[in-house]
């Protein structure tokens, strides 16, 4: 497999049945400008593709003359991404339609597992006429609730079905229910959504993971002595895959007077030099992991082996 020059962003479009996922995808396809999209959908049935644009059609893939490709993803996302990665050098962005009861964050984490892809935004479409009933539904209530609190952006749909008063009541209810920013889908700027950096904070999903996965544990490590940079890098390798998020400051033995900021979100790690603030001389890291017992203390000179889960 040839790797693309840069990872492709994957935007997950989630929301319960009938919330307008296909409508949004059709709109993105129509207003995409010169961006080349790959669209992974559950089925082709409702995709509104201009027949004149269709280049080739196979059982699972429709290739368009405008540089886009639509694929049926079914329940083998990995296979679809594997095929896409072959063509990724001619693509700019991937849209992934989640099934009505899927957890967009879980789906997104699967997409970013695949070499050559990174997670863009997780969007949940919210049918304002139905969502309050759905969160109480015996079968899907908890799944719909999760979609509302585990996303980067909520897009409200079918707002014309409610009176202004009812819509106001709904948005008040929603802002109590979820801290995720919400906006009317009709006001969505397509170019902004498909841009490389939307500027949306990624933290809500981290908070969500802690809330909904009580087995996630947070642990803090501190040290008054600097640590050899090679030891620290080995520690980062040891914990790869085990840590959901880590953040903090660290001092290296090679340059004890300088402070570095570590930021780790899943597979993305950055260590950057920070301007000195005050006279702090310590290192401190906060690590969020599924099993904090499996995370060795980076500042202990002799570390125990990484435990299995």
């Amino acid at each position: 497999m040839t790797l693309p020059a840069r990872p492709l962003p994957v935007t997950v479009i989630g929301g319960y049945l009938g919330s307008g996922k296909t409508t949004l995808i059709n709109r993105l396809l129509a207003q995409k400008g010169d961006r080349r999209l790959a669209v992974l959908v559950n089925d082709f049935g409702s995709l509104n593709i201009d027949a004149a644009l269709i280049d080739t059609v196979s059982e699972k893939t429709i290739t368009l003359t405008n540089g886009c490709v639509c694929c049926i993803v079914g329940d083998d996302l990995g296979a679809a991404l594997g095929e896409l990665s072959e063509a990724s050098s001619v693509l700019d962005h991937v849209l992934l339609e989640a099934s009505g009861v899927a957890d967009g964050v879980r789906l997104g984490s699967q997409a970013r597992t695949w070499p050559g892809f990174l997670l863009g935004q997780v969007i949940t479409l919210v049918d304002v006429s139905r969502t309050r009933q759905l969160v109480c539904d015996k079968f899907v209530g908890r799944h719909v609730s999760r979609q509302l609190v585990a996303a980067d952006l909520l897009l409200l749909t079918k707002t014309d079905l409610l009176s202004e008063t009812d819509l106001g009541a709904f948005t008040t209810w929603l802002s109590d229910f979820s801290e995720i920013p919400a906006m009317d889908a009709q006001q969505l700027d397509v170019a902004w959504l498909l841009s490389a950096d939307t500027g949306l904070p990624k933290t809500p999903t981290d908070i969500y993971e802690l809330q909904l996965h009580p087995q996630l544990q947070s642990v803090t490590y501190t040290s008054l002595s600097p640590i050899p940079r090679s030891d620290f890098e080995r520690w980062l390798r040891d914990i790869s895959g085990l840590v959901v998020r880590a953040k903090g400051f660290v001092r290296f033995a090679e340059s004890p007077g300088q402070r570095h900021l570590l930021q780790l979100v899943d597979d993305r790690i950055s260590v950057t030099l920070q301007p000195e603030v005050g006279l702090a001389t310590d290192s401190a890291l906060v690590v969020i992991a599924r099993y904090s017992g499996a995370i060795p203390d980076p500042f202990l000179p002799v570390r125990p082996p990484v435990l299995d889960d």
Partner: peptide, 23 residues
């Protein structure tokens, strides 16, 4: 290396990472 749910240094592919290994 560093991909979610793949720990290549330990040769470990789990949950979402498994689908990559199976492919």
């Amino acid at each position: 290396r560093g991909k979610h749910q793949i720990d290549v240094d330990r040769g470990h592919f789990f949950e979402n990472g498994l689908s990559y290994a199976i492919s």
